[in-house]
Design a binder for these strands. Structure first.
Lengths: 245, 245
DNA sequence: TAGTGGTCTAGACCACTTT
DNA sequence: AAGTGGTCTAGACCACTAT
């Protein structure tokens, strides 16, 4: 009987947490199994590695957040495919995704008119003026990738929805119908965690790290076009941009 | 005695996880307490909200990852100050941080020479050629903000360290000493989780969501200058950039 | 019905800080 | 010595999926 066994429930406290050792072992296992493979059940893996299920779950949880694993309740946990990398550009993601060989689509969640309120400043309108709010789930190959909330001045774009398929490119539609050129934008990027509602819409877990992108676009005259709040699944996508000076 | 009490260890399963309800309650508490305030101890809060300590900890953990709380082992948990927002630009963060009224500094962790290996492609050198690797912790107001690994061709910048204070701006030093102009860069942005080593260096928790920025910079002739891997604490900093088309 | 991942409880020991 | 956050265990019930 080893010292550790005698200690019973007491963990051996080295510098590296036990779950991280398990995570490393799992990473090796994933490499062996290969993309798309089904992982053994959590209870079996915990027994195999000699840890409690919740310790095993911490390791699995991190690999899931990083995009290495994908869990489905009732079915099992699978080895995931690599992240998409999307260019950070003025236009929406339609063309970029197509160029990478994926099929972009969208699902309309919310369509409403609201008083601009605190959005008034960004959109250079009066707080009492109305804005059009579109909330859409962005999908790649029919899998949720992000959640996009767009706010446009209703005075200028109020009839936007008339005869438009909301599963298509909003960028293209606005540019064509209103003869608007997206000339510049300011974009803010940070990490946040998904709320339960967002997690459900994106078919992921709450507490999944997300990339939050908040953009204000303007036309060639510097007049604001829209304010967009995009929440992207951090396990599924990254971005690339080009800097010059 | 309520129905819930009779059910004992069984949670009431609504759509919203219990820890998320607690998280919302905590957010209200934080607003009342104000920046810098000390939170009650976890065991007390758990009792006050009527949940197990690990459930309370999940709520606290999310607020910590989001930058709303800061935990110190043995001392307590405090209400944090807001995130920094740094411009995404070619130059390093020195001037940007100064402009925002903060004090930038760095701590040298690693200085070594290595064969370029897989970095050779990015740096347009031979895999057998050596690169200089500098690993530094970036600090703002003496608090760790990020971990930066820079790889430069040793053939061109090998004497970089001679008479240079590694806590100063590398960008400024390279530009001045070698008469190099940082003309362009490609930057990749994604979310990752901190490893235990990174978490320790950044004085944060493992599993903290981080912003990983990977950059290759080139001079006006398109010759690669450096490859930089920067890992920023997602709870402490965000970025802003300007897009044009 | 059996099995899977998701959530929660209760209790323990650890490393660290303050008194 | 006492108190704090960090990690781990063992066991339970839930919602969902496949058979």
């Amino acid at each position: 009987m080893t010292v550790d066994a005698v200690r019973g429930g007491v963990p051996e406290h080295g510098r590296v947490p036990k779950y991280y050792t398990v995570k490393t072992q799992l990473q090796n296992l994933l490499a062996e199994l290969g993309e798309g493979a089904l992982l053994p059940a959590e209870r079996d893996l915990a027994a195999a590695y000699g840890v409690a299920r919740s310790t095993l779950r911490q390791a699995i949880s991190e690999l899931t957040m990083e995009g290495r694993l994908r869990a489905h309740r009732g079915r099992g946990t699978f080895v995931a495919s690599p992240k998409l990398i999307q260019p950070l550009s003025l236009s929406s993601y339609t063309e970029a995704l197509r160029e990478m060989g994926h099929v972009p689509s969208r699902r309309l969640i919310t369509e409403e008119r609201l008083p601009a309120g605190s959005l008034a400043g960004d959109l250079a309108i009066d707080p009492a003026d109305e804005v059009l709010h579109l909330e859409r789930v962005l999908l790649a190959d029919d899998e949720p990738l992000g959640l996009e909330s767009t706010y446009l001045p209703a005075g200028r774009f109020g009839d936007l929805m008339d005869g438009w398929d909301a599963t298509g490119s909003l960028y293209r539609h606005v540019a064509d119908r209103y003869q608007v050129r997206y000339a510049q934008a300011t974009e803010r990027i940070e990490t946040v965690l998904a709320s339960p509602r967002e997690a459900q819409l994106l078919n992921t877990n709450p507490a999944q790290p997300m990339l939050l992108m908040q953009r204000v676009s303007a036309d060639q005259d510097g007049v604001p076009i829209e304010r967009v709040r995009s929440l992207y699944r951090g396990d599924r996508i990254g971005f690339v941009t080009r800097l010059t000076g």
